[in-house]
Design a binder for these strands. Structure first.
Lengths: 339, 339
DNA sequence: TTGAAAGCGTTACCAG
DNA sequence: CTGGTAACGCTTTCAA
């Protein structure tokens, strides 16, 4: 077995209490003993056992991030932000995948009840009702924040992009280019981001006296494949819209692919706007005009918010931090073709 | 404070030992007491405290994945594979980012020394020498496996794609199409994947009596941006190669973008092949011909290998599991233009 | 089949 | 400033 605090105490001729202090509160120990103890610590390569420390201190120094699908590259930048912020305060990041956890019948919250993590950052607004009520219980609720997505019924602090403003930017851009016949490709309406972005779109169009008939709202399931499949839907719209606003970049990239296969050119025949500004959007052909979410910052803010919440006596339950978005204008949008 | 095993013991009129058995080794307890205890457990919503359990059992039930950059979406699918496999055996996945950890001066291995994790899955073959020697120490070495990348000097078990075979497939494909003038866009040569893939390319070309002059080896830094910048390099090659083999999809997508900006068409003017088969490769325009890595499986295998290693008495140090790759032929390759 | 008790490795309180 | 010692919550001998 590896060297413990007792060994260090024995070897340096002090009590375990003093060793512990030397390591955790050096200012409580005399210069002399401190040096003495540290020498032994170095020599033995001693490290505190975090499980013992955490058991004693009653905390885990780690948080769990719950995402719908770990395989979705959208989350990478958020993880990066989360991790950087957590690391700075000595916390660890655990990740789990709500989709496969639920499939395998694992409880998402066992870690919280287990005391294995101090808190949870939830990136999935679509958790089943059972989990929602479980989360809302008083012993859990104070240790949870949402990032990116959220529960429509509220009740938890959250960090999110300004989805409506993003859609307004996108609509303004298209309208500015002269588009009057705009369609909207959404993800599943059960997703809170989709309803939010749709609402933003409708409001922004309305501000220009335009409306969005049901026929012009498509569902692409938020995915590349769904976007590609939606090309069919665009084709059968008459007259064909001159622009399609997509609820995500994946949707837009998939749609571009589907339209390309049908001989429709972007942006000559139809303009496309995405949402997210994922890494590749700048490099696809044509480069995608899109609403940029600052995912790094979103992650960092979420970590920060959770930290604050965990250390607060009486944490506010309804904090909502909105991260600004910006429009990246690139090659996928152009003025509509004039016949 | 939350309910502990003592409470359950008291409430059900048995000892803590019996409660513990009921929960961990039900077969050691009589039907009767088991039911009795379980009833109280349910009623109180009791969950074992994993920190206490782990301290006692001397294990962490979790592993740490070290990636060079959490923000790189390439890793998402691997995480997914890792997590699914780990979850199935009740383990947790911690993630960290070697780049920012090193920048912030955090030790990557503290978790291992800390007993905070049982093992490490390392996805970064480029760790600094200090970390390498630390990892190689006997107390650590048995608890580490590599995935995707590895240390060229060996010494650790690893799971990797068949990089050379992948390049052979790609070369065969291009040669079969009639290409004779092929360039190779690499990532940094300090990266083991790059040297491996380059070697595979040279060997495969050699098998057809072709060689790869230094002028035809470019460095794109493995990134989208690097790929785009490499368009400049391709342009100044005379005669211009009819195909470029890229060491990653990101490189290929970036290069396609750069070439497009210069009026070079893919695949009409030049064919492009990638490596990885990232999610969007099938949807970019033109869809990218690429060597598919099964990243989900790679992750799952790595988790499996680590588990086996942790429970083995005398783990083999040099196991290398090679995951087969396959060629996805799509729109970015075509026969060379005949003048 | 069950219970008593000895840890697992720390930290923190209480004396001195 | 330091030492003794009681927790933290659980598992696992050892006896009964």
């Amino acid at each position: 077995m590896s060297v413990s605090i007792k060994d260090i105490a024995r070897l340096s001729g002090v009590s375990t209490a003093t060793v512990s202090r030397t390591l955790s509160n050096p200012e409580l120990v005399s210069e002399e003993t401190r040096a003495q103890v540290m020498a032994v610590v170095e020599a033995q390569g001693y490290r505190v056992n975090s499980m013992a420390r955490n058991l004693r201190r009653q905390r885990a120094d780690s948080v769990l991030a719950i995402v719908p699908d770990l395989g979705n590259p959208f989350f990478s930048a958020i993880f990066s932000g989360l991790q950087q912020s957590l690391m700075a305060s000595g916390m660890d990041l655990l990740v789990t995948d709500s989709r496969s956890a639920l499939e395998q019948g694992h409880s998402l919250l066992s870690h919280l009840r287990n005391a294995r993590v101090d808190g949870v950052i939830c990136l999935d607004g679509g958790l089943p009702a059972a989990v929602r009520t479980e989360l809302a219980k008083p012993e859990n609720a104070d240790r949870v924040v949402f990032a990116c997505e959220w529960f429509p019924e509220g009740g938890f602090p959250s960090v999110r992009s300004d989805n409506r403003a993003g859609m307004t930017l996108a609509v303004e851009h298209l309208v500015g280019l002269g588009h009057r016949d705009i369609a909207y490709l959404s993800g599943p309406m059960s997703n809170v981001l989709c309803t939010e972005r749709l609402a933003g779109t409708i409001a922004a169009l309305g501000a220009h006296g335009m409306d969005l008939p049901a026929s012009h709202i498509g569902d692409g399931d938020f995915s590349l494949e769904g976007g590609r499949a939606a090309a069919e839907w665009v084709m059968q719209l008459t007259p064909r819209p001159t622009a399609v606003l997509c609820a995500s970049d994946q949707l837009a990239i998939g749609l571009a692919s589907g339209l390309h296969a049908r001989g429709i050119r972007v942006p000559e025949d139809i303009s496309l706007v995405g949402f997210d500004d994922i890494q590749s959007s700048e490099y696809v052909i044509p480069a995608l005009t899109t609403v940029r979410q600052d995912r790094l910052r979103l992650g960092a803010c979420a970590a920060e918010l959770l930290r604050a919440r965990l250390s607060a006596d009486h944490p506010a339950a309804d904090t909502v931090i909105t991260i600004p978005v910006s429009l990246q204008i690139r090659g996928s949008t152009a003025p509509p073709k004039t016949l």
